[in-house]
């Protein structure tokens, strides 16, 4: 068995709000999440509503957020045991791309600096001309012309260009893994395709990606695997095509059903009832499914016990945390 690139095991992240007036309040942002990235290049997309914990999960994988329990192992080494030199190596191999291309740059420095500091810090080139060649090569790889970008300040570039400079930066590092948190939500449709295609090209060159989005059509385009999160829990995981075309968890079904069809001949048929929209204040419970209050198929057991992860339906490549797929609770068995 080949060693996994990244293994997340029973990871939980808890925020404690020790407010002056409110007393102690805890928020479980990530709740008992486990998954693995294989050693071969893979794209894993994480989808879910806002507040589902997908960004927190990404930050924890990047080592920017402390976990409450569970482990993140990179190439079989636990992140919590990392020291200075380990982090340096980790930062070289695992590269982030953040959501807001307007907030990630220092406005006082030219674009060149973002790329040159990297060359220096990680000793990517031995002399200046090598460094320049490397930078220009990276910019061309993300479909930018070096003369359009170099020497300019961040405010002179569009959002799409800034996000691509970030990808050029990533490309120079030749990382093993990219963790991209909503990288295309702030760029135009015509440029999104370009960004997604770059990620696909990177995969073909051996770079894995964890891609976070709330846009399911984008997720589907990337293929690979998909993880659906709801209120901190991973509720479905599997092959993209299987999950998107045959969603097993009622929450995933709801999400897929809400995606605009892109074809005016196939519009939504009937208006949906109220369960779709999450208006309730969520009370965290160890003893219930996270979706029970909204679920149209909720059974008695769902309110009292947490559904473990099981293989849904007939496909081994699709797992779901739902009692509908537990033999003893299936409605048709009762």
């Amino acid at each position: 068995m080949s060693e996994a690139l990244l293994a997340v095991d029973r990871l939980s992240v808890v925020f404690r709000d020790t407010g002056l007036f409110q007393g102690n309040k805890t928020t479980v942002a990530v709740d008992d999440v486990s998954f693995e990235l294989p050693s071969e290049p893979t794209l894993v997309t994480i989808v879910g509503e806002s507040g589902s914990g997908k960004s927190t999960l990404a930050r924890t994988i990047l080592g920017l957020q402390r976990s409450a329990s569970g482990t993140v192992r990179y190439r079989n080494r636990d992140l919590s045991g990392f020291r200075g030199a380990d982090w340096h190596a980790f930062r070289r191999e695992v590269q982030p791309v953040f959501q807001d291309p307007y907030a990630t740059y220092n406005p006082f420095y030219r674009i060149d600096r973002v790329l040159k500091v990297l060359v220096r810090k990680f000793a990517l080139a031995s002399n200046d001309s090598d460094a320049e060649a490397l930078i220009e090569d990276a910019l061309r790889a993300v479909d930018l012309r070096p003369q359009d970008v170099l020497g300019r300040y961040p405010h002179q570039l569009s959002g799409g260009e800034r996000q691509r400079v970030m990808l050029a930066r990533v490309y120079m590092m030749k990382p093993k893994l990219i963790v991209a948190d909503e990288p295309i939500s702030m760029i135009d449709a015509a440029l999104r395709a370009l960004f997604l295609n770059i990620l696909l090209d990177f995969r073909d060159q051996g770079i894995s990606s964890i891609f976070i989005t709330h846009n399911l059509a984008t997720a589907y385009y990337l293929g690979g695997r998909i993880m659906v999160m709801c209120r901190g829990r991973m509720i479905e995981y599997g092959d993209m095509d299987q999950v998107v075309l045959h969603p097993s968890h009622p929450y995933t079904q709801l999400l897929i059903d809400s995606v605009p069809s892109h074809n005016p001949h196939h519009r939504w048929q009937e208006e949906r009832s109220e369960y779709a929209v999450d208006a309730s204040e969520f009370v965290f419970s160890e003893q219930a499914c996270v979706f029970e209050a909204r679920c149209p198929h909720a059974m008695d057991i769902c309110h009292h016990q947490r559904p473990p992860f099981v293989t849904a339906a007939t496909k081994a490549s699709q797992q779901s945390a739902c009692f509908l797929y537990h033999d003893e609770y299936r409605p048709d068995q009762a």
Partner: peptide, 23 residues
């Protein structure tokens, strides 16, 4: 171009074309 640059859910997965150049 605009219509072809947007991914749709389901169906065949063809490589999307972006619109080259800047606005």
């Amino acid at each position: 171009r605009l219509i072809h640059s947007i991914p749709a859910l389901g169906g065949p997965r063809e490589r999307l074309e972006s619109i080259p150049g800047m606005a």
